[in-house]
């Protein structure tokens, strides 16, 4: 069974960077109405770069594990680099095929992070 790889299950069961981030300066939340998944993101952005990232949320293993992995992946990246991230980057990071029915779950974290960056710029 490929979708539920060791790594995804590991991040789902032992999420990294889950919970509040005290000195965050960028926030956002997203919600997937079809499955009820919720993700909130808290970032610390300094000099156009992500220095810290935390998330919180409820939802399926794919959405939660992917988001948790992303909170590690994006550290040190510039805002432009994150804005340029897209579906292939997520699939690469996960290292698995994702069916069209589940791709939304895998992309929820990234879109929430992008939203936090946009909101931060306008703050």
């Amino acid at each position: 069974m490929d979708l539920y790889s060791e790594i995804i299950l590991d991040y789902y069961k032992n999420p990294r960077n889950k919970g509040p981030l005290k000195d965050a300066n960028a926030y956002s939340e997203e919600y997937n109405p079809s499955c009820g998944d919720k993700i909130s993101i808290q970032l610390k952005i300094e000099d156009n770069k992500i220095t810290k990232a935390n998330f919180d949320g409820i939802g399926c293993a794919i959405s939660q594990a992917t988001t948790s992995m992303l909170t590690e992946e994006i550290i040190g990246k510039t805002i432009e680099e994150i804005k340029a991230m897209d579906t292939p980057d997520i699939i690469n990071m996960l290292g698995i095929e994702i069916s069209p029915g589940r791709i939304k779950c895998a992309l929820l974290g990234l879109s929430t992070i992008k939203k936090a960056i946009i909101l931060h710029k306008h703050a």
């Binding site: 069974m1 539920y4 109405p33 499955c35 009820g36 939802g59 293993a61 794919i62 069916s99």
Partner: peptide
Amino acid sequence: GIHPHDIASIFNEYGVAIRSGKHCAHPLI
């Protein structure tokens, strides 16, 4: 501890087609 989307994905691996989600009945869910 297991989200219904994950349940449906794994069931599908075993050839079992089930529905997961809110079933167009959000207030009931």
